[in-house]
Simulated assay, not measured.
Amino acid sequence: MTPASRFAYLLLKSGLLAATLTAPAWAQPEKTHPVIATGTDSMAEPPSRLAAYLYGKEQIGALYAVGREWDKKLGLQQGCKDSYNIQPAGLFLLKPIDFPEGKPHPVAGAWQHRFVFERCGKRMTYNAVFVARPGDKPEVRQHVPGDTNASAPLLADTLKGATTAALLKLAKRAKGCKTAELIDTRLTHPPRATHEADKPAGHWEEIWTFRGCGRDMQLTIVFTPDGKGGTHYAIKGGN
């Protein structure tokens, strides 16, 4: 039994698959859709088949490729000869999955894998988004590294302001610097519970690391839900 299939088996035995294959806190899928649908009716697909697919050889291979690309991009572990260790860290449902019986791949849906990529003692958290395509393997899309709690739309919106702030700070360290790339996100304070009176419900904080002109800098981002389905962000500062 491979590490991936063993992980899927443990999920099934412990009943954790349903908890693992869920939308993240920020996602709001339509409640009328089943999490997993067959091609002809709304009966839920047996979790063993879905788990075997989501943690199967092809999916793990795709995560390996994404991890290698990010390591190369960030200049990490290029001289290391040890094998890579992939540890699943989260699985988020982005769109309901349609995985008809007899089909080798889902024909509709989208999901995000979060995984720890380890080699020679260096651990990085990466993300990959899979988008199902009828008659073909899912399309694999890179996502920002780290464990951000921000949804894709919120991430894109925040990135505009955060990149501008990062550029201003990087320009002070490297004159004329005009590039700032987000290379890591770290959730430092998870969403607050409703009983924490000192903070709004759902409030959370993250540290984003940008790289530009050979230098790294960090920004603290504070996210606050507005209670109407939206979320505001504020940049506390950088170092």
Rank of each mutant, 00 (worst) to 15 (best):
L91P: 02
Q77F: 03
C120W: 03
R119V: 10
P145L: 12
P106H: 00
G109E: 04
P47V: 02
G67Q: 12
R141Q: 15
Y53E: 07
G75R: 13
Y84T: 13
H105N: 15
A132T: 01
Y53W: 14
K103F: 05
L74Y: 02
L91D: 04
V131K: 11
D82L: 13
Q77P: 00
V35I: 12
K72F: 08
Q112P: 07
E139R: 14
P96E: 08
S83Y: 11
V107I: 14
C120V: 12
V35A: 12
Y64S: 07
H143Q: 15
I60H: 02
D82S: 15
K57Y: 13
K72H: 11
F117N: 05
R141G: 03
V131L: 13
H105L: 01
L63C: 08
L50T: 14
I97P: 02
H105G: 01
G61C: 08
T125N: 07
F130P: 05
G121W: 11
M43V: 12
P46V: 04
L91K: 02
V66K: 10
A65L: 11
Y126H: 08
P88T: 04
G79F: 07
V144C: 04
F115K: 08
G135D: 02
M43S: 11
R68N: 10
R123K: 14
F130W: 07
S42H: 06
